[in-house]
Amino acid sequence: MPRPQRFLVGLIGAGIGTSMSPALHEREADRHGVRYLYQLIDLDSRPGEVGELLASARRLGFHGLNITHPAKQDVVEFLDELAPEAAELGAVNTVVFRDGKAVGHNTDRYGFATGLARALPDAPLGHVVQLGAGGAGLAVAAALAGAGARRLSVADVDPQRAGRLAEAIAAHHPAAVEPITPEQVPARLAEADGLVNATPIGMEGHPGTPIDPQHLRPGLWVADVIYRPLDTDLISAARRLGCPVVDGGGMAVHQAAASFRLFTGLAADEERMGDDFAELARGGDDG
């Protein structure tokens, strides 16, 4: 079957009005000489309707969708199939409509793993504390375990969600995964090598830090999955202390490149997409 030269894709999520995804995808498509329209479908005005929106996108001829907070796990029940990495995690950030089926994928794991490896290739992974066990948290934990983390302490405001994450990761990786409460985080951080924020706290509309910055210390590496803003309060506080930091830009770029490949079958240039992201983050033209 010949590859289509026109693509209609979109993003479903809450608070996505300033997402860079449309520009990242459309600029890459321009370099390949294909027409590509990336639409934002904001759940703020339609909470809890991801299934209906998915069905509408399929009827309207979308080639695929990206899925972001808070629907990465909720969307699973509305899909026909899950790719292996999505089935392992129980979380989806990319849906491809093909051959009459809606197939869920997860490119977040690749995105975080690649971003961390490029930003901090020598980051120690003996013990990492992770905040957040939702859809992004599942991908981050799997990426850390796959990169060789020996011990993960995962905190979430919902203890059952943290427990489910621990079970999911333990089923596929040898890492010791310990669900903890938010109150236990300071004690774990005192002996940890790294900290990852996989919660929405710090993004536009959810200001603040997921932990008190007084619990950070020099030598602890700190990563955030948020890229709007790029310098979250957590990243800024860590940088002031001299901590090695990884902002959410790398994950955003690499997961977008992987999603673009799934939507189009074309090889995305991740270096060029990284340059696009840097320009957009500085306030460059979105076109």
Rank of each mutant, 00 (worst) to 15 (best):
G15C: 03
L138N: 15
F62M: 02
G194N: 08
R151Q: 12
I169S: 10
A119Y: 07
Q160W: 14
R240I: 08
G274H: 10
A113L: 07
L120E: 09
D80V: 02
D275H: 13
A267L: 13
G205H: 05
M203P: 04
Q73V: 10
A117R: 14
G51S: 07
R164P: 04
E271R: 10
G132R: 02
A267S: 14
R240L: 11
D233V: 03
P218V: 15
I169N: 06
I211C: 06
D231T: 14
S45G: 11
D224A: 08
A238Q: 04
D231V: 13
Q214N: 07
G111D: 15
L53N: 11
R58C: 09
G15H: 05
V185D: 08
E52G: 14
R27F: 05
R217F: 07
L8W: 04
A237E: 06
A117V: 13
G61Q: 03
E77V: 15
A166P: 04
A91D: 00
L65S: 09
F263V: 01
F277E: 09
A252K: 08
L125P: 03
A143N: 02
A198I: 05
A252G: 09
I211P: 00
L40K: 12
L241P: 03
A23S: 15
T114F: 09
L53G: 13
V75G: 12
I16T: 11
L241S: 12
L116H: 04
V34Y: 01
V95P: 00
A133D: 13
Q160A: 15
G283R: 00
H25K: 03
P47I: 12
I226Y: 01
F263K: 04
F277C: 08
R188M: 12
T264S: 05
D231F: 08
A123W: 01
R118T: 10
P47R: 07
L189N: 05
V34C: 05
L37T: 14
L131G: 08
V225T: 11
T264Q: 04
F62I: 04
E270T: 07
T209I: 05
F263D: 09
P179A: 15
M273C: 11
D158S: 13
L79C: 00
